[in-house]
Write a protein that binds this DNA or RNA. Structure first.
Length: 843
DNA sequence: AGCACGCCGACT
DNA sequence: GTCGGCGTGCTC
C-alpha cells in the first residue's frame, strides 16, 4: 500500500532531466522540501546508506548555496545520470518512516484543493521540533588583518564581536531587519568574518534520573547488613528503607528502578544523602527517557449514564452513520453533546480504531479535557498550539510508533496532520467556528472540510456538532449529503434563557443610558451582583475605543503602514493597529490642527471594563480578550477565577462564547449587537446569530432561568428576532435564500485571489489584466478586482478578485488554470513582484 | 522561501 | 569612480 500511494505523489516527471554526462552514484532519493516549490528534488546516497532509507523518512540535505533543510524522502530509485552533479544526502534522520501513506495522500489532496504546494503542507504538518533547519553563524576571524571598514561593516563587526557568535537572523533583527546580506558577504570575502553552518537542535527527549540497587547487593542479607551499618546515618537509612518500599522489594524480594525525584520526596532526604549512598556503592543512578506529557491519571474511569434524550440522539446518530459518512448533531447549548461524544468514542476505541476530536483553537479548555480524561484517562493525547513544541513532538512520535498509545486525540485544526493509521471517527465540535480555517500561511485549509476528506481516506465517520450549524453544513444536510440528528432539550432540564432586546435609539434619545448601559442592563447587573450571581458582558471588539478623533477638525489617526484607524488601548496608553500590530503613543494634540480636544469614539472591552469599575466599584471584574489571554495559562486562570466565583463580572470578546459552562451566570449582556450586524460580509448575519446564540447559552442556572439582554439600535433586525426565538431554521431559510440569489456559498463555491504590491499602480494594472484574462474563460463568475476593506497592510496595497463557481463545475482543472494564468502574468517584467495569494473557500 | 548575482542611482 | 539598495532567477 505504501508504494502505491507514494507513486501517486510522484506527479513530478523524470523527463525534466537531460542525461548528457555520466555521473554514476549508488542510489538516488527524490525528496520533498518544506518550501513553496512545486517539484521534488534529487539527491545522491551511497548504496549502503540507502538500505537504511524508506519513503517517509527524513533526511538532511543542502539546498542552494548554504541552507540545510529537513527533506522528506518520497522515492528511492537506482542511479540515473544527470546533467549536473547531485548533492549528497547529508544525514539520514529516521530509521523508520515518520510520515505514513495516508498522510501523503492527504497532503497531496490538500495541496491541490487549496492551491498550494505539497511542500507547504509538509511544513505545516510536522511540529517544529521534527523539522531541523540550518542557521548561519558568524564569527570574527582572529587572524584578520586590520583594515578600513565602512559604517555598516563596523556596525556588524561590533555586533559580532560583542556576541562572539551570532546567527544571521539574530543579526538582521538587531539591525532592524535591514538588508544585511551584501555587507555580511563583503566581510566574509575580506576574511574578517567566518561563517559556520549549524543545524538547530530539534526535539530533545526529557530525561529522568532513576535509582536502583548496586549489583553488589544481590541478596537480602547484604541489604540488611547495609541497613545495620546505616544506623548512625538516619537520612541514609530512611532513603534505603524508602527505596525498598517503593521498589516493591519489601513484598517481592526483587527490586526495580525507582524515580529519583519520587524517592527523595518520599524519604524526605536530600540529594547529598543519596550521593553518599551512591559513593558507598549501595545505589546506582541512571537516566532514562521520560514523557513530558501528563500521565497523571489514577486509572479510574467513569462514564455518566445518558439521559433519555441523549440516548435517543445517540441511537439516532448510529442509525444515520449507517446511511451517511458524515452526520450533523444539532444540539442546543448545554444539551450534553459531550456525553454523547464520549459514548461514541468509547465504542470506536473498543473496536480498535482511533478517534480525532477537533475543537476550535480557543475552546480547548481544561473543562473539556478533564471531562474526557475522566472517561478515558491516559488514552487521551492533547495536541494544541499552546503546548510546547517538545510536547507536541512527543504526541506525534507516540502516535506514529504506536497507534494505540493515544487512541483518542483532542486537538485543534492542525491535528488533522497527525500520523493516524486507523481512524474510525472524527468529531468536529463547534463545527461552525471560523477558527477551523487557516488564513496565513499556506496551506489555507479548513480543518472541518479537510477532516471529511481525511475520514473518507480512512473509511471513518465524521460527527459535526454544534448549536448553531454553519449554512454550509446545514445545506449538506438538506441536500442529503449529511445525516442529521437534533437534540433540543437542555441537560438536566436547565431552561433556555429569556432574551430581552433594548432599543438603544430610544435609550439615547431619552438620555437614559449610564455609560454604555441601558437602564435594563444596568439594573440587571446590579441585581445579579446583589444576589451573588455572575454576569458576562460581551463586546465584539477589544481595546478601549476603535478610534480617536479630533473634535475641532475631525482628524482621525491612521496606521502609517495600513489604511485603517488606530485602536486606542488605555492600558498601554497607546494606539495599536490591529492589522500590523504597530504601536504609537496617544497623541497629545491633533496632527492636523493642533487642537488638544481629542476624544475616543466607540467602545471596546477595555472601555466597558473601565465603566463597570466606576459603576460597580465593589464588583470584581476580569477581561477576556486577545490582550489579556495571550497564553494558555493566562486564559485558563481568567476562566478559573470566574468558575470559582473569584470574579463577578466577565467582560470579553467572542472568547467568552466558546463552549464554556458556568453554573452561576444569571445575566448575559450583549452590549452592542450592531457592530456584528453591520459588517459588510455575506456571512455577517449568520455569524451574528451564532455569536449571540452561543453567548446567550452561557446564561442560566440549575433552578433559575437566565436572562440575556441584547442592546441594539437596529431594533427590527430579523436576526435579533431569530435569536430571541432560538429560531435557527428561520435564520437558515432566510439566509440561504439570500445566498442563492446573490450567488454565495453554500450554493456557489468561492475562490478569492488576493494580490499584493508596494506600488498602487503596478498592483492595479496586474490585478486588472489578470481579471480580464480569467474573465475570458469564466465570464461573469469573476468579480473585481476591488480593494478590500483595509486596502493597505504593512505598506502593501491589496486588491482582490472573487470567483463564484457553480457547484457542478469541475474545480480541479479550473484551479490549475487559475494558477497557470498567474504564472503568465508573472512572466511580464512589470508584475514579477506582485504576490498572488489564492484562498479557496475563504472566510 | 532564501540567497547570490547584477544592475543602477547616490555620494566620496 | 565605489558603495549599497533592490530586482531576478535558481535551487537537485
Amino acid at each position: 500500500m505504501l508504494t502505491i500511494s507514494f507513486h501517486a505523489l510522484a506527479q513530478y516527471s523524470f523527463a525534466f532531466y537531460i542525461f548528457t554526462r555520466m555521473n554514476p552514484v549508488d542510489k538516488i532519493v527524490r525528496v520533498l522540501l518544506p518550501l513553496p516549490l512545486r517539484q521534488l528534488f534529487t539527491y545522491s546516497v551511497g548504496a549502503e546508506a540507502a538500505k537504511a532509507i524508506m519513503p517517509g523518512c527524513r533526511v538532511l540535505v543542502q539546498f542552494g548555496k548554504k541552507k540545510i533543510y529537513t527533506a522528506l524522502v518520497i522515492e528511492i530509485t537506482s542511479v540515473v545520470e544527470t546533467e549536473f552533479e547531485l548533492k549528497p544526502v547529508l544525514e539520514i534522520i529516521d530509521k523508520v518512516p515518520i510520515v505514513n501513506a495516508y498522510q501523503l495522500r492527504f497532503w497531496k489532496w490538500m495541496a491541490s484543493y487549496y492551491m498550494c504546494s505539497v511542500g507547504e503542507v509538509y511544513k505545516a504538518s510536522l511540529p517544529t521540533g521534527l523539522k531541523l533547519d540550518s542557521e548561519t553563524n558568524l564569527m570574527i576571524n582572529p587572524d584578520a588583518e586590520a583594515q578600513q571598514l565602512s559604517k555598516n561593516e563596523t556596525l556588524i563587526y561590533d555586533l559580532v564581536d560583542t556576541n562572539s557568535k551570532i546567527s544571521i537572523s539574530d543579526l538582521a533583527r538587531s539591525m532592524g531587519n535591514l538588508n544585511i546580506h551584501t555587507v555580511v558577504r563583503k566581510l566574509v570575502n575580506k576574511q574578517i568574518l567566518t561563517t559556520e553552518e549549524y543545524v538547530k537542535d530539534g526535539f530533545k527527549p526529557k530525561l529522568e534520573k532513576m535509582v536502583s540497587l548496586h549489583a553488589n547487593l544481590n541478596h537480602e542479607f547484604k541489604i540488611n547488613a547495609v541497613l545495620d551499618d546505616l544506623a548512625r546515618a538516619p537520612k541514609q537509612f530512611q532513603l534505603l528503607a524508602s527505596y525498598l518500599e517503593l521498589s516493591g522489594f519489601t513484598k517481592t524480594k526483587t527490586s526495580t528502578a525507582v524515580v529519583q525525584k519520587q524517592l527523595l520526596e518520599q524519604s524526605r532526604a536530600s540529594s547529598a544523602a543519596l550521593n553518599a549512598l551512591v559513593k558507598k556503592e549501595v545505589f546506582v543512578v541512571s537516566s532514562r527517557e521520560t514523557q513530558r506529557l501528563n500521565q497523571d491519571w489514577d486509572g479510574n474511569t467513569e462514564f455518566k449514564q445518558l439521559s433519555v434524550e441523549q440516548n435517543t440522539a445517540y441511537n439516532e446518530i448510529k442509525n444515520q452513520f449507517a446511511k451517511f459518512d458524515s452526520v450533523l448533531l444539532h444540539g442546543v447549548t448545554s444539551s450534553g453533546k459531550t456525553e454523547i461524544y464520549i459514548q461514541l468514542i468509547k465504542e470506536t476505541i473498543e473496536e480498535g480504531k482511533q478517534v480525532l476530536y477537533l475543537l476550535p483553537e480557543i475552546a480547548l479548555t481544561t473543562q473539556l479535557i478533564q471531562r474526557l480524561k475522566k472517561a478515558f484517562g491516559n488514552k487521551i493525547g492533547v495536541y494544541h498550539s499552546k503546548f510546547s513544541d517538545n510536547e507536541r513532538v512527543e504526541t506525534y512520535n507516540a502516535l506514529n510508533k504506536d497507534p494505540d498509545k493515544y487512541p483518542v486525540i483532542i486537538g485543534v485544526r492542525s491535528s488533522v496532520f497527525l500520523p493516524f493509521s486507523k481512524l474510525g471517527l472524527i468529531i468536529v465540535d463547534e463545527e461552525h467556528e471560523n477558527t477551523y480555517k487557516q488564513y496565513d500561511p499556506a496551506p489555507r485549509y479548513n480543518a472541518r472540510d479537510s477532516s471529511v476528506v481525511l475520514a473518507q481516506m480512512h473509511g471513518a465517520k465524521v460527527l459535526l456538532g454544534t448549536a448553531t450549524p454553519s449554512l454550509e453544513t446545514y445545506h449538506n444536510v438538506k441536500t442529503n449529503k449529511y445525516g442529521l440528528v437534533e437534540l433540543f432539550t437542555r441537560y438536566s432540564n436547565i431552561q433556555l434563557p429569556e432574551i430581552k432586546v433594548v432599543d438603544m435609539n430610544r435609550v439615547y434619545r431619552k438620555k437614559e443610558q449610564t455609560g454604555n448601559f441601558s437602564p435594563l442592563l444596568y439594573n440587571s447587573i446590579a441585581n445579579a451582583l446583589k444576589q451573588n450571581e455572575q454576569v458576562i458582558l460581551f463586546q465584539n471588539r477589544r481595546g478601549f475605543s476603535p478610534y480617536i478623533q479630533c473634535n475641532t477638525c475631525g482628524w482621525i489617526p491612521y496606521c502609517k503602514q495600513c489604511d485603517v484607524s488606530m485602536t486606542y488601548h488605555k492600558h498601554f496608553g497607546k494606539l495599536n493597529c490591529h492589522y500590523c500590530g504597530s504601536m504609537q503613543y496617544m497623541p497629545k494634540e491633533c496632527d492636523n490642527c493642533a487642537s488638544t480636544d481629542l476624544s475616543t469614539k466607540g467602545f471596546g472591552t477595555e472601555k466597558i471594563e473601565d465603566d463597570i469599575k466606576l459603576l460597580f466599584p465593589h464588583a470584581k471584574t476580569a477581561r477576556l480578550d486577545l490582550d489579556t489571554a495571550r497564553t494558555r495559562k493566562k486564559y485558563e486562570s481568567i476562566i478559573h477565577d470566574f468558575e470559582t466565583g473569584n470574579t463577578n463580572i466577565l467582560i470579553g470578546t467572542q472568547m467568552v462564547s466558546k463552549g464554556l459552562d458556568f453554573d452561576n451566570v444569571s445575566v448575559v449582556g450583549i452590549v452592542n449587537a450592531d457592530n456584528m450586524l453591520s459588517i459588510p460580509d455575506f456571512r455577517a448575519w449568520e455569524r451574528a446569530f451564532q455569536l449571540m446564540a452561543q453567548v446567550s447559552g452561557r446564561a442560566g442556572r440549575k433552578k433559575k432561568q437566565g436572562l440575556v439582554i441584547v442592546q441594539t439600535r437596529d431594533f427590527g433586525n430579523p436576526v435579533i428576532q431569530q435569536v430571541i426565538d432560538n429560531n435557527y431554521k428561520g435564520l437558515f431559510l432566510e439566509q440561504a435564500a439570500e445566498r442563492k440569489l446573490f450567488r454565495y456559498p453554500p450554493y456557489y463555491r468561492l475562490i478569492r485571489i488576493s494580490m499584493k504590491h508596494r506600488d498602487k499602480q503596478i498592483l492595479s494594472q496586474a490585478a486588472k489584466i489578470y481579471g480580464q484574462q480569467i474573465r475570458k474563460k469564466l465570464g461573469a463568475r469573476v468579480l473585481g478586482p476591488e480593494y478590500p476593506l483595509v486596502p493597505r497592510i504593512q505598506n502593501q496595497y491589496i486588491k482582490q478578485i472573487l470567483i463564484k463557481l457553480e457547484r457542478e463545475v469541475s474545480v480541479q482543472k479550473l484551479k490549475e488554470y487559475l494558477l497557470e494564468e498567474i504564472d503568465i502574468i508573472k512572466q511580464s517584467p512589470d508584475f514579477k513582484q506582485v504576490v498572488f495569494v489564492p484562498d479557496v473557500d475563504p472566510m
